[in-house]
Structure formats: structure tokens, C-alpha cells
């Protein structure tokens, strides 16, 4: 149960983190805004590894033992950021949210099968419902924004 609660809390923090990153991007530019996050998190994590007594994990021999593929997660994160920025500029927030989620959840089903050998076809139904729910919510949001914009224009002409 604790994992489920932490996963929800992670999503909660994700939104706050995005908003703060957007602010950093506005003030410094996208790349420098992201750089603050990476530098700070690297230093904090480095200190915490030693504070928690796990400094031995930074031995070169140990680092080499871990398959190189597993270190590539952050490169994937950077690639995702580039595709997301380019795609969102052209297609808008709603399409980007839904398509990205489709890619994320689809990939995670495949990788859960590869790494944990778990595949439950019913999960595809669940993912479909999640995507429908989010598309519906975004459509309502777009409709409301359009209505507000029309009202504001009307008031301006009056």
C-alpha cells in the first residue's frame, strides 16, 4: 500500500516541479533552467549517499559492474524533453499530454514484461480508460478557455 501512496505523491510533486521548472525556464531560458535542477540534485544526492553510509557505491570497479544500458535512463529523459518541446509547439498541450501518456504507458507495459516478466492484458483496458478520461478533461478545459476568451472579447468591444 505504501508504494501506491508514494507513487500518487510522486505525481503530485511532479506538477509542482513542472511549475517551478517553467518559472526557472522563463527567467534563465529552458536549458539553464533545467541545469539548476541537475546541478543541485547531483550535489544533494552525492552528499546523501555518503551521509547514509553508501559511499562505497562510487568505487570505479563497482560502477563498471553495472550494465551500461541501465545508466542510459537520463539520456532517455533528455531525448524525451527535446521531442516533447518540439511536438508541443506544433500540436498543443492536449494532444501532447495524451500522446505522451500513450507512449509512456505502452512502453512501461513492454518493459515490465522484459524486466519483471509480468503481462496482464487487462492493463490495456485500464490504460485506454485513463487516456479517454484525460482526453475528455482536456476537451472540457479547451472549451471553457475558448468560452472565456469569447466573453473577454465581447466585453472589450462593448
Amino acid at each position: 500500500m505504501i508504494y501506491y501512496m508514494v507513487a500518487v505523491a510522486n505525481g503530485f510533486l511532479n506538477t509542482i516541479n513542472k511549475m517551478v521548472n517553467v518559472k526557472a525556464g522563463e527567467c534563465l531560458g529552458t536549458a539553464r533552467g533545467a541545469m539548476i535542477n541537475y546541478i543541485e540534485a547531483t550535489v544533494i544526492a552525492f552528499c546523501l549517499v555518503y551521509v547514509t553510509g553508501n559511499g562505497g557505491e562510487f568505487r570505479l570497479e563497482y560502477i563498471k559492474e553495472v550494465p551500461l544500458l541501465f545508466y542510459l535512463g537520463s539520456i532517455c529523459g533528455l531525448a524525451a524533453m527535446i521531442f516533447l518541446i518540439v511536438g508541443t509547439k506544433q500540436k498543443g498541450a492536449m494532444t501532447s499530454t495524451v500522446l505522451m501518456l500513450l507512449g509512456q504507458l505502452g512502453t512501461s507495459i513492454v518493459l515490465d514484461y522484459v524486466f519483471f516478466e509480468v503481462f496482464r492484458p487487462i492493463q490495456i483496458v485500464g490504460i485506454f480508460l485513463i487516456l479517454v478520461g484525460i482526453t475528455w478533461k482536456e476537451k472540457l478545459r479547451e472549451a471553457e478557455s475558448a468560452l472565456n476568451l469569447a466573453k473577454a472579447n465581447e466585453e472589450e468591444t462593448e
Binding site: 524525451a80 521531442f83 501532447s96 507512449g103 504507458l105 518493459l111
Partner: peptide, 12 residues
Amino acid sequence: LAGVFQGFMISL
């Protein structure tokens, strides 16, 4: 692809 790469990131 952005989603695919994010999925890879989280799994890796």
C-alpha cells in the same frame, strides 16, 4: 516518442 523515452527512463 517523448512518452516512449520517458517510459524507458523510468524503467531503466
